[in-house]
Amino acid sequence: MTPFERPPVGMNLGRTAKLVAQAFDAALVEAGGTLPVWLTLLSVKSSTLANQRELAGMIGIQGATLTHHLNAMEAQGLLTRRRDPVNRRVHLVELTEAGEAMFETLRKAALVFDKRLRVGLPDERLAEFAQVLAALRANVES
């Protein structure tokens, strides 16, 4: 078998990741959100009074990009920012009642999407897949 009879693993993985990401984005939009809103809400919800620098790191984006998203989400009433009393240069981010409601809506959409993604895949195969993904990450990180 020549190398071109089947796509390289990286190409196949990239195509699949892109397709899954697009479908997940569409599911979030249908639920009234976006991927950046979901990632921000999830990150804020999973930390106690996270500051903007920590949030950017959790989400994997630059601080300036996060500021843009936080400004929009604050204008929508999904979160509030306030100065840290210990370090006035740091903003602490908290969800509002509307942010909590949006989090719950998008959480449900994410769970429905995950269930759709797993259809026909037994737990053993998913566990093996997780191991393969971990090995691929380790191969590129070293």
Rank of each mutant, 00 (worst) to 15 (best):
L136V: 06
R116A: 07
K45D: 03
T67W: 08
T48L: 10
A135D: 04
A27T: 04
E94R: 15
R83H: 12
N71E: 12
L42P: 00
E100R: 08
A110L: 05
G57L: 13
G57F: 11
E104A: 13
V9F: 12
G32M: 07
E124S: 11
P36T: 04
K115R: 15
T2M: 08
P7G: 14
N51Y: 04
Q62N: 10
A64Q: 13
V29H: 13
A127W: 00
N12D: 15
F113Q: 08
K115Y: 07
Q62D: 07
G60R: 08
A134R: 08
Q52N: 06
G14E: 14
A134D: 12
V132H: 05
A50I: 00
H69Y: 13
E97A: 12
N139I: 04
G10L: 09
L95H: 07
G77C: 10
L95Y: 11
P85M: 13
V37Q: 15
R125V: 15
L111T: 06
T2W: 06
M1E: 08
E94F: 05
L136N: 08
A64W: 09
R118V: 00
T48R: 10
I59C: 13
Q62R: 11
T34D: 03
P7F: 12
F113N: 00
K108M: 09
L66F: 14
K18P: 00
G99L: 05
R89K: 14
A72I: 08
E30C: 07
N71A: 02
A26L: 02
L106P: 06
N71P: 02
N71H: 11
M102A: 14
A23S: 13
F129R: 01
L28Q: 03
R89H: 12
V93K: 02
G77L: 10
A50T: 09
A17W: 09
K45F: 09
E141V: 07
P85L: 10
V90H: 01
S43N: 03
R6Y: 13
A56D: 06
G10P: 11
F103V: 12
L28M: 14
Q76S: 14
A135R: 14
A127F: 02
D84T: 02
R118W: 01
A130M: 07
A75M: 03
E94N: 15
L70W: 00
A64S: 12
V93P: 06
G33L: 05
